[in-house]
């Protein structure tokens, strides 16, 4: 990255941080981050990654902007109702920072294409709205050896954690199998600002991973209860040696094994919320 006066000014607040500085900013400028889902979590995540100067941001979503999304999905706007979410997100991200390269991925992520798509990126953000998809992303990241940030949100709160290959538990270590009673934002409701908190945490984890700053939510789960304003960081340091995807003798060695677990809903953040 050629560091001209405009960039020095744009990223001035990063450059003064000892944990980021010029070196960290250069790392950000060549980093590739994939955000899966441009909804409640993905909206703030993409905006902060773009403003932070992450070189390439892939945005995967096959849905279109709906009026009911705008209460929380702050990357989209009223005049873009009906537009593809990837196109809308690209417009907003580029408006904030024209230097970043946005890659819209309109295809629905499934067990056949997800490994190919995530393999292009350094860090992945799971911003989807269903456990089925969250487990598909988890299993794909474990199999492909990719670090990723998990988060979920309903009502006034949710949780976030970061998976780093070989360094902490994966989602399957913690939950076992896919919960099929999952509440989604449509039947439970969600406050936009709560999704904003968790999506921002995901973007922050990506920035920390890329720059090497601080301590990730690896081996820890952050639970955010915005209704009573309680936050707890649970230590869950141990991976499960019997985990069916990241354990010593995994049964899920490719995504076809569990195809039916993920495939019913595929990857969505919008249409089936309504």
């Amino acid at each position: 990255m050629s560091f001209d006066a405009a960039k020095a000014k744009r990223y001035a607040r990063h450059l003064v941080l000892k944990e980021i500085g010029l070196n960290g900013q250069k790392k950000l400028s060549v980093a590739k981050v994939l955000v899966i889902g441009a909804g409640g979590l993905g909206s703030p995540a993409v905006m902060y990654l773009a403003s932070a100067g992450v070189g390439e941001i892939g945005i995967a979503d096959y849905d279109k902007v709906d009026l009911s999304n705008l209460q929380r999905q702050i990357i989209h706007t009223t005049d873009r109702v009906g537009m593809k979410k990837t196109a809308s997100a690209q417009i907003s991200a580029k408006a904030v920072n024209p230097d970043v390269n946005i890659i819209p991925i309109d295809e629905r992520l499934d067990p056949d294409n997800i490994i190919r798509i995530i393999s292009e990126y350094d860090f992945i953000l799971d911003c989807t709205d269903r456990f089925e998809t969250k487990f598909m992303i988890n299993d794909a990241c474990v199999i492909a050896g990719k670090p990723y940030s998990h988060a979920g949100v309903v009502r006034f709160g949710g949780q976030a954690m970061t998976y780093i290959p070989g360094r902490g538990p994966c989602l399957r270590c913690l939950l076992g199998s896919v919960p099929h009673d999952s509440e989604t934002c449509s039947n439970a409701g969600v406050v936009g600002a709560a999704a904003g908190v968790l999506g921002s945490i995901q973007a922050l984890e990506a920035v920390k991973y890329i720059t090497g700053a601080g301590k990730l939510l690896c081996g820890r789960v952050l639970s955010f209860d915005g209704l009573h304003m309680n936050v707890r960081v649970h230590k869950v340091s141990g991976s499960d040696p019997h985990c069916t995807v990241c354990g010593k003798e995994p049964s899920i060695t490719d995504l076809s094994v569990n195809r039916n677990d993920y495939y019913i809903y595929g990857c969505s953040t919008g249409g089936d919320e309504e």
Partner: peptide
């Protein structure tokens, strides 16, 4: 989860229970 019915909490145990939600 298969061991929840047979795992007894003992005096002095340190337990973390983490609830997850699936929305986004």
């Amino acid at each position: 989860k298969a061991l929840y019915t047979q795992t007894v909490l003992n005096d002095g145990d340190t337990v973390e229970i983490v609830g997850f939600v699936g929305g986004g």
